[in-house]
Simulated assay, not measured.
Amino acid sequence: MDLVRGFWRKHRRKILVTTTCLGSGYLLYKLYNAHTRKLADLERELANELENDEIIKTQMKAHFENIQMIADSTTLPHAMRHLSSRIVEEIHVSSIMEKLSKGKGTLTPSEKLQLWNELKILSFTRMVLSLWSVTMLSLYIRVQVNILGRHLYIDTARGLGSSHLLEELDLIDRDDEQKFLASADYLASNGMLSLISNMQSAVKEVLKGKQLKDVLTTKVLEETVIRILDVFMSTGSPHHWVDYLMMAQDATMLPSDTTTTDVPSSDSTVSKFHLLITETREVLTSTDFTNVAEISLKSCTVALVEEMEKQTGLATGMQVAKLLPQIEKTTPEISAEPEKNRFLQLIRDLPEVQLFFTLLYSNMPL
């Protein structure tokens, strides 16, 4: 016992220091080990988050490309064919030209003048209306695609935060998606008659001082078309032209089949479609969209007049009466099939249009 006490007295300091070091070392080891495990857990969580981000991006890209494919291969071509046929059906230019052709030698001067004036109004109406309709419809469909893409992002991100598996997420109801894209036919099916009437009023106002013998140059024709568009767009309430492109906001809340009143419609389906339409209207009535639409219309007007200049002597001036047949020859090119339509390609390639839709798709608050 004395030996132990002596050893303790002699080596107490060393023992305490050694014990303290060993204890501290063990504690540091435990802390380091815990910290290492925590870092490993964080790294795994980060890896999982990155993997989820990649899954989100992959699904976003796949779904958005699918929607884009539907728009380019189905929605836009169908809408353009429908639009073109409706314009031809409702603006009867060919019948007047036929009367003029068959009436040579039999029509009185006043009858002939009246028919020529009708042809002047209808030809300009058809040309400017085609230009406006194709431009606005192509922009409208692209707005639809980007809004669907935005909803895809939001629904996917929210879904990953829940207990649902990503594969089980129904990001956007397919019926809503198809119904929303099908609304691109509203212009041709529902808005055409009032659009023609108001566009024709704008044409009459701008052309009331122009006679059949007046000479138009490239610059004057371009200014005339732009003036007609300005009068049309500015007549009536602000953004009145949106009502030609899409149904009234309240109409989206009505059930699609009013005969089956005993089966209540899905509130989520109705509200989802209503939300899509509401967002679309908000975009169309925004200042940014109005600016993009004006730039697109101006660019297409310039391209149209340049095309007519190549085929006629418009650069040096041409009488209105001689210009009308050329207008009729060129106008169908405006609403040609998308793959052959240089005006649609022109709109897609405009830097302002590309920037607008890039910002529209990327602006996705959660």
Results as ranks from 00 to 15, higher is better:
242 V>C: 13
237 S>F: 00
236 G>R: 04
251 A>I: 03
209 G>K: 15
222 E>Q: 06
211 Q>D: 15
209 G>Y: 13
241 W>Q: 12
224 T>C: 11
204 K>A: 15
245 L>W: 13
248 A>I: 07
241 W>C: 05
241 W>Y: 10
197 S>G: 08
239 H>R: 06
202 A>E: 02
258 T>D: 13
242 V>G: 04
223 E>L: 10
216 L>V: 06
225 V>T: 01
202 A>H: 02
207 L>D: 03
221 L>Y: 08
197 S>N: 12
245 L>T: 14
218 T>K: 15
236 G>Y: 00
220 V>D: 08
218 T>Q: 13
196 I>V: 12
230 D>K: 15
258 T>H: 13
245 L>V: 15
229 L>A: 12
234 S>Q: 14
222 E>G: 01
197 S>A: 15
217 T>N: 11
207 L>P: 10
240 H>A: 15
248 A>E: 14
253 M>T: 02
254 L>H: 03
203 V>R: 07
230 D>G: 05
195 L>E: 12
219 K>T: 04
253 M>S: 08
246 M>Q: 14
228 I>A: 06
242 V>Q: 06
215 V>C: 11
228 I>N: 06
228 I>V: 15
223 E>Y: 04
247 M>V: 14
196 I>T: 02
196 I>Q: 13
237 S>R: 08
227 R>E: 01
233 M>R: 14
249 Q>E: 11
232 F>D: 03
240 H>G: 08
221 L>C: 04
228 I>Y: 03
256 S>H: 02
250 D>S: 00
248 A>V: 08
197 S>Q: 12
249 Q>D: 10
199 M>W: 05
211 Q>V: 04
250 D>I: 02
255 P>A: 07
245 L>K: 09
259 T>D: 09
231 V>W: 01
220 V>Q: 13
251 A>F: 10
232 F>A: 08
198 N>V: 07
249 Q>R: 13
223 E>M: 05
230 D>S: 09
231 V>E: 00
206 V>Y: 07
210 K>I: 14
234 S>V: 02
217 T>D: 11
220 V>L: 12
245 L>R: 13
223 E>S: 05
214 D>V: 00
225 V>C: 04
234 S>K: 14
236 G>N: 05
208 K>N: 13
214 D>G: 10
216 L>R: 14
250 D>Q: 02
223 E>H: 06
200 Q>Y: 09
224 T>H: 06
203 V>I: 09
195 L>N: 13
196 I>R: 03
235 T>C: 07
206 V>E: 02
201 S>G: 09
220 V>W: 05
220 V>H: 09
257 D>T: 09
242 V>L: 12
219 K>I: 11
253 M>A: 07
195 L>H: 12
240 H>M: 09
258 T>S: 03
203 V>K: 06
233 M>Y: 11
224 T>I: 06
243 D>S: 15
218 T>G: 04
235 T>H: 09
231 V>R: 15
254 L>T: 01
207 L>K: 07
248 A>R: 11
255 P>V: 07
204 K>L: 12
235 T>S: 15
207 L>H: 11
249 Q>K: 15
236 G>C: 08
217 T>W: 01
198 N>A: 12
196 I>E: 05
232 F>Y: 14
210 K>M: 12
213 K>L: 03
241 W>P: 00
252 T>G: 03
